[in-house]
């Protein structure tokens, strides 16, 4: 297989009864890369991760690690330390025993075990936690112990299953920054599963978006946001209003509020000039204009979102756009004017 890839998933397929959980999924992960598998629940992301770890046998397809086919290897031979969603810490062992478990299984001497476990714990900012009971840890601490336990065996690829989903929002923000910092500092290659786009964007170099067992798009977070290949991707990533229009290969003409507006456009390579496309209007690409040159509309909803406000504006009988603004003075029911202020906009097939 390809030389640069550390981990390679080649047409992995898994069927549960009648449902195709993972459908011919291929993905390459380079050495030192952090990749997020993102998707709604039931999209097949956890099944994919479990096939990589060896817990779930694929019906077809292969898993390659550094050019070797490891599809038939048992989980314990693959030795990807996995961080589980609920951490799966052994409740009858101390923190130190948990972290040292993988070394004990490999027959590492007791002295070396405890030294390496201590280093691993220090790596996740839990120096001295070794003798503590698992039950005495907070959620965030448990997450870090799970990470240390996986790191200590120096896995070729670290796998993480929803590592942040069990934390409350504040802790979650700080933990995901720590997680990225730790993985970066140690130069690890990691594949992690999440349903949360903020987690994915904050931690991953590349995001692989899944739906119904298939990969919709793989790319850097900005790429997914700015150049969605399909309506599904555009819907899943960020917020958007979809407006029908005609695409001529360079620009898109949309008919909104009784007028035809032509906007510079960017389309996925699969989409040629076509009459019926959807223009993706992101809330941050729209703004109120004072001089009445934009689309006239009525504010139907106003929501405070911290530094900005999110407004919904009805611009014609079929279209309601969402826009972000720092302008606090606009109220529900106000008559306003809206225009696209950032081009190009992306277009996707209907």
């Amino acid at each position: 297989m390809a030389g640069a890839a550390r981990l390679s998933l080649d047409k992995l397929t898994r069927r549960f009864r009648d449902k195709l959980a993972v459908d011919a999924l291929s993905l390459e992960i380079a050495s030192g890369e952090l990749v997020a598998l993102m998707g709604a629940s039931g999209s097949g992301k956890t099944t994919t991760l479990r096939m990589v770890a060896g817990y779930e046998p694929p019906d077809s397809g292969r898993v390659w690690l550094e050019g070797k086919d490891i599809t038939a290897r048992a989980p314990r031979v693959r030795g990807f330390g996995m961080v589980f969603q609920h951490y799966a810490l052994f409740p009858h062992m101390t923190v130190g025993q948990n972290v040292a478990f993988g070394l004990e299984a490999r027959g590492v001497s007791k002295a070396e075990r405890s030294a390496r476990a201590a280093t691993a714990l220090a790596n996740v900012d839990l120096d001295g936690a070794s003798p503590r009971a698992i039950q005495s840890l907070s959620g965030g601490e448990q997450q870090r112990v799970a990470l240390a336990r996986a790191l200590v065996i120096e896995p070729p690829v670290l796998l993480l299953d929803e590592p942040l989903s069990n934390l409350d929002p504040n802790l979650r923000r700080s933990t995901r920054n720590e997680l990225r910092a730790t993985l970066r500092r140690l130069g690890l290659t990691a594949l992690f599963v999440t349903h949360d786009q903020e987690d994915a964007f904050a931690v991953a170099d590349r995001v692989a978006l899944m739906e119904n067992g298939r990969l919709l798009q793989v790319g850097a977070p900005e790429e997914l946001h700015d150049n969605p290949v399909s309506r599904s991707v555009a819907e899943f990533i960020g917020r958007a209003t979809f407006v029908p229009g005609d695409y001529d290969g360079k620009s898109v003409t949309v008919h909104v509020a009784g007028t035809a507006t032509t906007l510079a456009a960017r389309a996925p390579s699969t989409l040629g000039p076509e009459r019926n496309v959807l223009a993706v209007l992101r809330p941050d690409a729209l703004a109120f204009v004072k001089n009445g040159s934009g689309w006239p509309g009525v504010v139907t909803d106003r929501r405070f979102a911290g530094t900005q406000l999110v407004y919904r504006v009805r611009v014609d009988s079929e279209t309601e756009v969402e826009l972000q603004s720092t302008d606090r003075d606009v109220r529900e029911g106000d008559k306003v004017s809206v225009r696209v202020v950032r081009e190009p906009v992306s277009v996707v097939a209907t």
Partner: peptide
């Protein structure tokens, strides 16, 4: 919790070791 056994396997523990230790 089935994930405990999976976690142990992922960390390299053999069936016998998992049985005895987990």
């Amino acid at each position: 919790d089935g994930t405990l056994d999976e976690a142990a396997a992922g960390l390299g523990a053999s069936t016998a070791f998992r049985l005895r230790k987990v």
